[in-house]
Write a protein that binds this DNA or RNA. Structure first.
Lengths: 66, 66
DNA sequence: TCAATATGTAAAATATATTTTACTTTTGTT
DNA sequence: AACAAAAGTAAAATATATTTTACATATTGA
């Protein structure tokens, strides 16, 4: 699972900590997901996409191994 | 987390078992998610939406408690 | 350069999703 | 009614996401 979180954050100019606060998870969770260490839950993915004003598919992309 | 899986399945006329096979999970997983017993992972939500030819947000909707 | 802010990382604990196996109930068809 | 297919359920095991605490490194601005 790939994602554009870093780019979307840059557009909004918000830190990992700020995004974390907006979607009510810890900063470490955002960091791990942004770095692709694991994939989020659907609820979290939808909340993140919502913050960016994008569809889930615009922020997260399935890969072959998914 | 709400969803329209039942309706989307009806449109495609596929059973829970068939959807499960398409997205590579067990029938019980589809049943549990369809009934709202728990929310799927983002990967699974995206695969399900893809089968239906819809965006994740069209198949799954966040609720207040999410 | 110094300090502050942001990011990366890690291990252990907890929460949640998914599988497996198995059985029950419902629905649709003949 | 009888049969088959579909859907519902449940408990235990496993996999994965998320939290917590804590520290290390990098980046930015004064």
């Amino acid at each position: 699972m790939k994602n554009n979180i870093r780019v979307e954050r840059a557009i909004l100019q918000i830190s990992q900590a700020e995004l974390a606060e907006k979607v009510q998870v810890t900063r470490q969770t955002i960091n791990a997901i942004e770095l692709g260490k694991y994939a989020p839950s659907a609820v979290l993915a939808m909340k993140i996409a919502k913050v960016f004003g994008k569809a889930v598919e615009e922020v997260f992309q399935l890969e072959e191994n998914d």
